[in-house]
Simulated assay, not measured.
Amino acid sequence: MSTEATVSAPTEDRHPGTAGIDGLSTLEILRVLNAEDATVPGAVAEVLPALAALVDLAVAAVEAGGVIHYVGAGTSGRLAVLDAAELLPTFNAPDGLVVAHHAGGGEALVRAVENVEDDAEQGRADVDAVTAADVVVGLTASGRTPYVGGALALARERGAVTALVSSNPEAELAPLADHFLPVATGAEAITGSTRLKAGTAQKLVLNAFSTAVMVRLGRTWSNLMVDVVATNAKLRGRVLRILREASGASEDDARRALEDADGELKPALVTLLCGSGAEEARAALRGNGGSVARALAALGATGPNGAAPHPASPRTTTPAAHPVATVPTGDPA
């Protein structure tokens, strides 16, 4: 027997400005959607102080041996899985450092599975490994998803840090979160379709959160991905380019340093910047939490002003202004 739930959330409201969207031309439809999308970064900006506090807690948790857990259903869960999966090739994040729990598991990634988001007990079961050392981030556009609520409730019981990302400022699950990030994206262009603005907001929040955590953990040097894993030809070329940009070395010298370091970018970079051997570079990195900057300082490497060497900032240019599209409102169909 099926049951119904009345969801009270801004994402379920009917947008008065898009009521006539089905009567517009294709280009007009796209302009309407684009104009709505353009409001999302501003909504995310409003929660940046809360997000910064969460990043700092997550960094401290990871440094103490904790794990970051994402929990979501539907679009929220798929975005969580995507963000966690991309941390390995981008930052060489250790397996299990960021774990995504999606209601319904792998099957639900590619097709909807009935009732899984309503199963609070499964949410509890899926995060049963959570400890007080961990951080659990729940993602739900409506702010009420029972699967997420079950996970956050168990995390609270275990003493873990809890957070909730939602597009509902009055989220039902907010009391379960130590850190509530209400990204007020408002009504969707297509009523209730939270894969649109709400999903975009979650993608931006997760990208910013995980990237900031990785930067704070020393997995970049300047704005270079010095922990990137070269799993294909494009990435192997990127590794070589990063080495050259960061050190000013010739292509031959960069290749040689990379070979001496068994293909590992960080020890190759330290070697090029301070003239150490690959094993000495590895030891310095291990002793300094994997941070290139701290490893260089430990090895006594200095730049022109006595500080640890650092890549120069690239030359920047002012981007050309883009024309602002006029958005037709249309009439209700």
Score class of each variant (00 low, 15 high):
Ser166Leu: 08
Thr326Trp: 11
Gly123Pro: 12
His310Ile: 06
Gly263Val: 09
Leu240Ser: 04
Ala295Ser: 07
Thr6Lys: 13
Ser2Gln: 12
Ala160Ser: 04
Leu269Phe: 06
Leu196Thr: 13
Thr194Val: 11
Ala174Met: 05
Ala189Tyr: 01
Glu46Asp: 15
Asn207Val: 04
Ala43Gly: 08
Thr145Gly: 09
Thr318Asp: 09
Thr26Asp: 07
Glu280Tyr: 04
Leu97Ile: 08
Gly106Met: 06
Pro182Ser: 03
Glu279Gly: 03
Ala85Gln: 13
Leu152Gln: 13
Gly65Asn: 10
Arg216Glu: 08
Leu152Ala: 13
Lys266Asn: 05
Glu157Leu: 04
Leu152Trp: 13
Ala151His: 08
Leu152Glu: 13
Val135Lys: 02
Val99Phe: 05
Val55Cys: 03
Asp262Lys: 06
Val229Ser: 01
Pro309Leu: 01
Leu206Thr: 11
Leu240Asn: 02
Pro311Arg: 06
Val71Lys: 10
Val239Phe: 00
Val110Cys: 05
Pro94Val: 09
Ala177Lys: 14
Gly287Asp: 14
Ile21Cys: 04
Arg315Gly: 08
Gly72Val: 10
Thr271Glu: 10
Thr3Ala: 14
Asp331Val: 15
Val47Pro: 03
Arg244Glu: 14
Glu157Met: 02
Val136Ala: 02
Ala43Pro: 06
Asn288Glu: 00
Leu57Asn: 05
Asn92Asp: 14
Ser313Asp: 10
Gly159Glu: 01
Ala198Glu: 01
Ala84Arg: 08
Gly42Val: 04
Ile21Leu: 15
Met214Asp: 03
Pro309Ile: 02
Ala163Ser: 08
Val47Leu: 05
Ala295Arg: 00
Leu57Trp: 00
Ala53Thr: 15
Ala93Thr: 14
Ile190Thr: 09
Ala333Gln: 14
Ala73Asn: 10
Arg158Phe: 03
Pro304Asn: 12
Asp119Phe: 06
Glu114His: 08
Val148Ala: 02
Val226His: 11
Arg78Asp: 13
His69Gln: 09
Leu57Met: 09
Gly277Phe: 08
Pro41Lys: 07
His101Gln: 05
Lys266His: 05
Ala246Gln: 07
Ala333Gly: 15
Glu114Pro: 08
Val67Leu: 13
Gly77Lys: 13
Gly77Trp: 12
Arg286His: 13
Met225His: 05
Ala246Glu: 12
Leu109Asp: 00
Ala208Gly: 12
Gly123Asp: 12
Ala298Pro: 01
Val327His: 08
Ala257Gln: 09
Asp253Thr: 06
Glu46Trp: 03
Asp253Cys: 00
Val228Ser: 07
Thr18Val: 01
Gly66Tyr: 07
Ala325Gly: 03
Arg294Met: 07
Gln202Met: 15
Ala160Met: 01
Ser8Leu: 13
Arg195Asp: 10
Ala160Arg: 01
Val67Thr: 15
Val44Asp: 05
Pro169Lys: 10
Arg144Phe: 00
Pro175Ser: 10
Ala284His: 01
Ser193Phe: 04
Arg156Ile: 01
Arg241Trp: 09
Gly277Ile: 02
Ala212Arg: 04
Ala129Trp: 02
Val327Trp: 08
Ser222Met: 00
Val99His: 06
Pro146Trp: 09
Gln122Ser: 11
Leu24Gln: 15
Gly306Arg: 07
Asn168Arg: 00
Arg294Tyr: 04
Gly159His: 02
